[in-house]
Structures are given as structure tokens and as C-alpha cells.
Computed example of a mutant assay.
Amino acid sequence: MDINDEAKSKMEIINIPPIISTYRQALRTFDDKFKSEFPTNLNKLKSMMDGLRADDLGFDKSFTEPSTWNKPNKAPCTYIEVFQNNKVNMSIFVLKPGFRMPLHDHPHMHGLLKVISGAVRIRSFTEFPLKEAADLIDFKTRAKHEAARLAQGVHKRRKLFAQISQNNICRENSATCILTPTISNYHEIEALELPAAFFDILAPPYDTFVEGVGPRRCRYYYINNEVSTNVVELHETSAPECFFCDQAPYLGPILS
């Protein structure tokens, strides 16, 4: 390789759009071939997402205008698919001002969420068991009962206890939020006074198969009881009628 070719090669590396670098890192992070490197790769992916901005994803700025959300029959949430295969789903969600994406779960999944426009309040929960009981309720006994019920194939709507693991306002300059199969796996997201958008990576995607469990289904919950300042009882419920999405095309760099 001569000097000019070498310089060109270096320039191409430098000029790789951030979303393409993030996409490539996501594929590596959640590829079973690199399972031994997972913690390192996940941290690297989070670091890349921390630096993402709306322009990196070709975000349509018309979504930031109130007039967009005042149109008749406009859905309160717009979904933009960036990429999906059987390992990773990458997408953008745009929320109407004041709209709250209902409390839902992410079964056996990792997730990363980066706000790219506006501000959202994210309240996340981590499922029981706790290390000790709170107030007068014996959480350990209740948790064992719930586990036994599910093991016997009694597939009624779930009830569980959870700790509040996050209750923060996140903005464009905030760090990426992470959920794991066991930590902060339940959350609700509320746009504040302006429209808000966030870039989301989930792995594996919803509907992919879980051995011994079946397809991953998104389930919705409500808080039935606030046991203490940071412990709640969640009950599964039907998908709220107020939550529906329309779709818009991804306008950012082609991922390859």
C-alpha cells in the first residue's frame, strides 16, 4: 500500500459515521462467538451510545414541533426501525409531550436506551427477591409461592414485588441507561413538556424464542401497592388502549 492509499484508508476509518460504529459494536456485543468478551463489549457499546446525537441517526426534526402531534388521529408514539435481526433490535421511539410509555418488561433481554431529543423520566424496577422483608409483608414467602405457581404451569397474570432501581430525568446529554435480564428489567418512560425521542437497542428482540419459556412477549404492569419508599407490588395487565404507535422511516446512514 502506498502512502496515498494508506492515508485514504485511515481517513475512511476516521469518517465512519457514529451510528455505523455503534451498529457494528452491537452485532459483536450480542454475538455468541464473543460471549467471553461480553462485559468489555457491552461497556464499549454503552460508551459509543453515550456520544450519539439526533443528527447521527438522521432524526427528523419535525417530530420536535408541537404541530406534528396536534394532527388528527396522530398516534402518541412513533416507532422507527433502524435495524433488526434475530440477535438485535435497534430502533427509535418518539413520544408525544406528556405521554407515558406504560410499564412493561423485557424478558431475558439486555437493553440500552439513549435519549437523543427532549427529556424523559425513566422509572425502572428490579424484580424481587429482596434480601429482607419490608414492612409487615413476608416477601420471601410470597416470592417462593409465585415461583412455585409459575413452575406448575399456572399461567395467570403475574404478580411480583420489585425495587425501584432508577427514577431519573434523562436528556440528550445524559448517559445511556442499561437494563439486564435481572436488573431494571421493568420500566416506564414519560416524555416531559416537549416531544422526546430515544434510541433503543434490545437483545434479543421481542418474539425471539427462549428455551423452556417460549417466545419473548412484552407484558404490561401496573403498581398495585406501594409497600415502602422503594418497594412496590406489580400486577400484570392488558396492553393499555392509550398505547399505540405509528411508524416512520429511518433516515440515517445505511448500516453495513
Rank of each mutant, 00 (worst) to 15 (best):
H104D: 10
L52T: 12
L179A: 05
F59Y: 14
P97Y: 03
K10L: 12
E233K: 04
K144G: 07
A175V: 08
T180E: 03
L192W: 07
I189F: 07
N85E: 01
V231E: 00
I3G: 04
R158M: 04
T22C: 09
I183L: 11
I164G: 10
H235L: 09
I189H: 10
N224A: 15
T126S: 05
I16T: 15
Q163R: 15
L112V: 09
S117I: 11
R123M: 08
A203C: 04
G98I: 01
L42N: 06
Q152K: 06
V213P: 01
F63Y: 11
H145S: 13
S36D: 15
G98L: 00
D135H: 09
T237S: 07
P129W: 06
L194Q: 06
K74S: 14
P181A: 04
G212Y: 06
L150D: 09
Y250S: 09
A197P: 01
T141N: 15
C218L: 07
R53A: 04
P66T: 11
H145I: 15
A134T: 08
Y222H: 15
C177W: 15
P195A: 05
Y206W: 05
F198A: 04
M49F: 06
E193M: 13
R157G: 05
I20H: 02
L52P: 10
I223F: 00
E193V: 11
K96W: 04
K87R: 10
T64M: 14
M1C: 13
E12D: 10
T126Y: 00
T176V: 08
C77E: 09
T40L: 08
D207T: 13
E226W: 06
F128D: 12
Y23V: 07
D32N: 14
N173K: 13
I183P: 03
A75H: 12
P107H: 14
G214T: 08
G212W: 03
